[in-house]
Design a protein around this nucleic acid. Structure first.
Lengths: 199, 199, 199, 199
DNA sequence: TATGAATGAGAGTTCATTCAT
DNA sequence: AATGAATGAACTCTCATTCAT
């Protein structure tokens, strides 16, 4: 390995250290409260050196969060098979578990600690996406029964409840994936089972 | 109107201006991030002058938030009449509407932007209170059927959903009290109706 | 009494109240640390109103201290009768007791809490005055014996000790004039008796 | 000299500049009145930069004063040999000269300008220590003669005079160690010689 | 590439002083 | 004469960011 490649290697190493340290910091403090000094210290480098790898705090935050957001939105727009319960519960659970396992910390940050960043309103956008999909999926049934929902904002409320619950379960369960899955299932059941008849 | 009364009027005017400006600031930034200078500027006064009306940032925040929290906890501890639907829905709605009409913005801040203040964990405490009450109310029915809930954390999840939904409705509806009431009813129905059978 | 005289009376009344309150404040805080607000509050008036009577904090301080300083310096330059002990101890004690009884608080402030005011170096000036007088009084005796003091700064040191001791006694004894007088006598004895033979 | 050593050099330079500037500031203003901005300006840096070297104003003050106080108390508790003159004058002088040479300005600040810091009452404590020792040393002689002192506060007065005198000599003599030693000797003689017969 | 010293703007807060009333 | 609201500059301290080395 020549010197330039070594440098390249070292560089990636440091970048990863920064990202790892930043994740920790963003998990315990909001975007605005997070300290570049602390991130640097926990990454084993100096504050100034971060700016070799990221233009700004904002840049660093987005570098971490962009892929998560991409994945999350992609998953929501995946086509689920319809089931007679209106909701493809198993697949939803699977998606949630996938995101949970891959982006545990990141999702937590995205939902809760992103104030001040461009992801400030990410929860609202996420809820909107889910809400839209929920509404679309239920529309045919309402049409068939010649019913309609008085105020479609209720879909937002339900979607928001689901998102909030996922975040709550994440906080409660930590790495206990079995409990996460059980609680998530129960939660989806409570919110979605027979939903049509409660609307 | 004599001078003393005029002074009184003017003084109250400024205090109100500060509170109004502070509400705006606390609505858009968390307690810690909010700036006394910005509050002053938007109230049309100098930063130092705020301290004629409030002893500190903390004092100002609590002056606004104390009444809300007092009312909210009082309401939660009120005794509702039991109904055959498990929940005294009408009275709950009335309570929520009361708080909504009086403390729209304040409740939002309390639930979302109180980090760094003494109300930092208010949402968790509120959710716990509601959760406890929910569990207590349902306990007899589970006992009668000789059933039990697998993971009682689900009560926390549901309570959290209710709290979050109220706050979402507030944000959505502005001053449209009729819509607030309708949505709140629908929300409670969706979350609570037949809840026993979905647990 | 007509209105104008009444006003005059009231005015003097307020001025006295300010001075009394200021004395208290300057006794417990240094000139710089003393607060015009506190002085006003304890005088039963508003801060702004002080400025009707005194141009500034400095002006107020000097108004109180000028007469004391005048008296103190005057007394020091009074002519004492010579005694065979070199020092007219009785008269010195009397002078000190006079100042003590009349300007208890003021002297304390002058010596200890005047930093930042024009009396900042008053102790040094006072000590110099006393020192000069001490030297002058002892000069003939040295001359007669054909002796001289190696370093005349020793007179400053002794004078300073006397001044400091007076202030210390003031702090210790409060209004117990009998103890003040006893201790002052003892102190003068300790420092001055047979001084000539210890130089 | 490599870069790291150079940095080290520069860093120490700045720290020294801060301490030097702080000494000046604390010499002319009390702890509370001293300004970090002024200290920074006179050290040729910005106010914020001080905080790279010292955690707080308090930290900076204590960094300068701690060693002095440590040395001073250590010396006072040292055991002196008894002499027939009651006092181990030579050793006292030596101790004073040691402190003088090491902590000229610092002792001045400690005794005079420490209000608001943890050394606020240091002079009183120091005087008490010396006073206690003085009293203890003279007690046997009083007992032997079946005498007693009317008011033992006189020991405090004498101790205070000694402390004050040391500080006065320091201010007067600057770096002229020979004169400091001569004056200190003379001062101790004036205050302590034959003290027993003047009490 | 990396350092770490330094900046500069901003935070909350205090207070002597001014001034319209 | 008196009020008390308001100012504005000062305070200590923090931190993202820059830059000479």
């Amino acid at each position: 390995m020549n010197r330039s490649l070594l440098m390249q290697y070292l560089k990636d190493d440091v970048k990863e250290a920064i990202v790892r340290s930043a994740l920790m910091e963003f998990k315990s403090k909001s975007y605005l409260e997070a300290s570049m000094r602390t991130i640097a210290k926990n990454a084993g480098i100096t504050a100034g050196n971060i700016y070799r790898y990221f233009q700004s705090k904002d840049d660093l935050f987005n570098y971490i969060m962009d892929p998560v957001w991409k994945d999350v939105t992609r998953i929501i727009f995946d086509n689920y098979e319809y089931t007679e319960d209106f909701f493809p519960i198993t697949e939803i659970i699977n998606s949630i578990m996938y995101i949970y396992k891959r982006f545990n910390a990141e999702l937590f940050i995205l939902l809760n600690n992103s104030k001040g960043s461009k992801y400030e309103n990410v929860k609202e956008r996420l809820v909107s996406l889910i809400s839209k999909r929920l509404e679309d999926e239920m529309a045919p049934f309402f049409k068939a029964d010649n019913r309609e929902v008085k105020d479609t904002f209720i879909f937002n409320i339900i979607s928001n409840a689901v998102v909030e619950s996922i975040y709550l379960i994440m906080k409660e369960c930590g790495d206990d994936y079995v409990r996460v899955e059980a609680l998530t299932k129960q939660m989806i059941t409570v919110f979605a089972k027979d939903l049509y008849h409660r609307l």
